[in-house]
Computed example of a mutant assay.
Amino acid sequence: MSNLLLLFTCLLLGIILQRIKGFPKEAHLVLNAFIIYVCLPALTLLYTSEISFQPNQALPVLMPYILFISSFVFFKILAPLLNFDRSTTGALTITAGISSISFVGFPIFELLYGKEGLKMGVLMSQAGSFVVCGTLGLMTASYYSSSEPSIKKMLRSMFSFPPFLAFCIAVLLNISNYHFPVFAGEILQKIGSPFTILALVSVGLQINFKKESFTQKPLLVGLFFKLFIAPLIIYLIYLILLDEKTWLSEMCIVGAGLGSMNTATIIAINHRLNPALASLMVGVGIPLSLITTMIWYYFLN
């Protein structure tokens, strides 16, 4: 109960700070930058280097790939039926197909599943959703915007992202069986510890519901897939088809239903794929997903 109260308290704090005169309007950008360049690399180095890899850990890695492919097929079939143009279809495919595992998922995984949940979240993010975003996401954006995908550009984007670079280093450390000294581990832990609070406050600073947003058919269809169909697909595959009734499978279902990834939205906007719709998928989808993921969590338990 205290974890849920913390989650909503941080969100409420962000919403309140939005309305305080004199408080920087772009404060969330500063928080996001601090998280990306400081907190996430520290946590990634700490947890990934200590993970003892097991076969069932393929579940969180594979989930983002299954999710994106499902999104591509879903909107490819639905677009002609609903008369969505290529720009709208591309924006929905990318934003609905990639979850915000780092910014939204990490604090939720830690609150619901403890330190082990955060460790698996790092794996899901860096080996899963971020790779999907930098490869399949970019290729899909190029396909729908009729531009040529560049492998060089994709690789540059991936390896210039600090948490992914930290992930690669941590994997090498893990393979070489290197363990950080106790004092180094404590330093990394303290550097990364503000992450949960800062990420949730940042999300709260970006919450902006507008009545007219909920009259847009593409947005409603995109949110329906992201918040309900996506976790249902992972539920059917992991719990029913594979019969993996574990907390790790449940975490993957929760992760599939999280709001859209900010980086994926930026890719859609940069490729001129319905920028307004792409922005709404994040601005409306993330706060709504905090409610729907809690519903999924209690349903699964």
Results as ranks from 00 to 15, higher is better:
Val203Phe: 07
Gly192Phe: 02
Ser213Thr: 15
Phe195Arg: 03
Ile187Tyr: 02
Thr263His: 05
Leu188His: 05
Gly257Met: 07
Thr196Lys: 15
Gly255Glu: 14
Gly255Thr: 11
Ser193Arg: 01
Tyr238Asp: 15
Gly259His: 00
Leu236His: 05
Tyr235Leu: 10
Val201Lys: 01
Ala256Asn: 04
Trp247Gly: 02
Leu198Arg: 03
Gln216Ser: 14
Pro231Ile: 03
Asn208Ser: 14
Ala256Tyr: 05
Gln216Met: 12
Glu186Asp: 15
Ala199Lys: 04
Leu219Asn: 06
Leu236Tyr: 04
Glu244Arg: 13
Pro194Met: 09
Asn262His: 08
Glu250His: 14
Thr263Glu: 05
Gly192His: 04
Gly259Ser: 07
Thr246Cys: 13
Asn208Ala: 13
Ala230Phe: 09
Ile229Asp: 14
Gly259Met: 02
Gly185Pro: 08
Gly192Ile: 03
Thr263Trp: 02
Leu220Thr: 06
Tyr238Gln: 13
Ile237Tyr: 02
Phe195His: 00
Lys226Thr: 09
Ser213Gly: 11
Val254Arg: 04
Val182Pro: 01
Val201Glu: 05
Gly204Trp: 07
Phe209Pro: 11
His179Lys: 15
Ile237Cys: 00
Met251Asp: 07
Val203His: 05
Thr215Asn: 14
Leu205Val: 13
Leu241His: 04
Asp243Lys: 14
Pro181Phe: 07
Thr246Trp: 15
Lys211Val: 12
Leu227Ile: 08
Gly185Gln: 12
Phe183Ala: 12
Pro218Met: 12
Leu236Asn: 06
Leu258Ser: 05
Ser249Asn: 10
Phe209Glu: 11
Pro181Val: 04
Val201Ser: 03
Ile197Glu: 04
Ala199Met: 08
Gln206Lys: 13
Val221Lys: 09
Ile229His: 11
Val203Gly: 09
Ile253Gln: 02
Leu227Ser: 08
Phe224Trp: 13
Lys226Met: 11
Phe209Ile: 08
Ser260Leu: 13
Ile207Phe: 05
Cys252Glu: 11
Pro194Tyr: 09
Ile253Glu: 04
Asp243Leu: 07
Leu200Phe: 06
Leu241Asp: 00
Ala264His: 11
Lys245Met: 04
Lys190Thr: 00
Ser193Cys: 01
Thr215Asp: 12
Pro194Ile: 01
Pro231Gly: 04
Tyr238Cys: 12
Met251Gln: 15
Ala264Val: 12
Lys190Val: 00
Val254Tyr: 03
Leu223Tyr: 10
Tyr238Met: 14
Lys245Trp: 00
Pro194Cys: 10
Phe225Gly: 01
Asn262Phe: 10
Ser202Cys: 15
Phe209Ala: 07
Thr246Tyr: 14
Ile237Phe: 07
Ile191Trp: 00
Leu227Asn: 08
Thr265Phe: 00
Phe180Ile: 06
Pro181Asp: 12
Val203Met: 15
Leu220Asp: 06
Leu242Asp: 04
